[in-house]
Amino acid sequence: MLSVSHLTCQRGERVLFRDLSFALPASQWLQVAGSNGAGKTSLLRILAGLSEPAEGQVTWKGRRLREDRAAFHADLLYLGHQGALKEELTPLENLTLGLGMEGFSPGEEAAAEALGRFGLQGREQLPTRYLSAGQRRRVLLCRLMLRPAPLWILDEPFTALDVHAVGVLSRLIERHLASGGSAVLTSHQAMPLPPGLSVTL
């Protein structure tokens, strides 16, 4: 379980949010809402342990994130704003090498199958530079199928996706929740998901 208590985030001289507390139990998802610049991405980065809050603390399974970084990161799958994709590598290489650095080796076949489910068959060997924004996003989302993790933190997962991909992604998230996982998402639109918790910044 992810729990957050009395979190304050400060960027430069501006306080983005103050005294934020919530808990996210298993099989639940949390929508982080708020206008542009309200601090949604900053919150996600704090939850992922990338940046330190000005005050307050985040715990995962009752332990503070800093206490055991490796154990927390083994349980965490984080997809940020940026793609973490290399333009000069193919989608297949991007997936296998990226996961390889996290200690997973899903194998080329599993990776190709995941790409196929997001409608990218035939493009596995094309340099990523030739893919559209939506296609790149889908390559990233394949990580959700290839790397098991009980906690997902996804920044704007539904942007730039077409109807088919939105369907695949929401089924993935539903299955993740059904199997006891939890997820934190930011989004501007209403999400095609069963009702969950929400926090507005």
Binding site: L50, A70, Y78, G80, M101, G103
Partner: peptide, 9 residues
């Protein structure tokens, strides 16, 4: 960022 979040050292 992904490398920093990797469970690997």
């Amino acid at each position: 960022e992904q490398m920093a979040l990797s469970p690997q050292p």
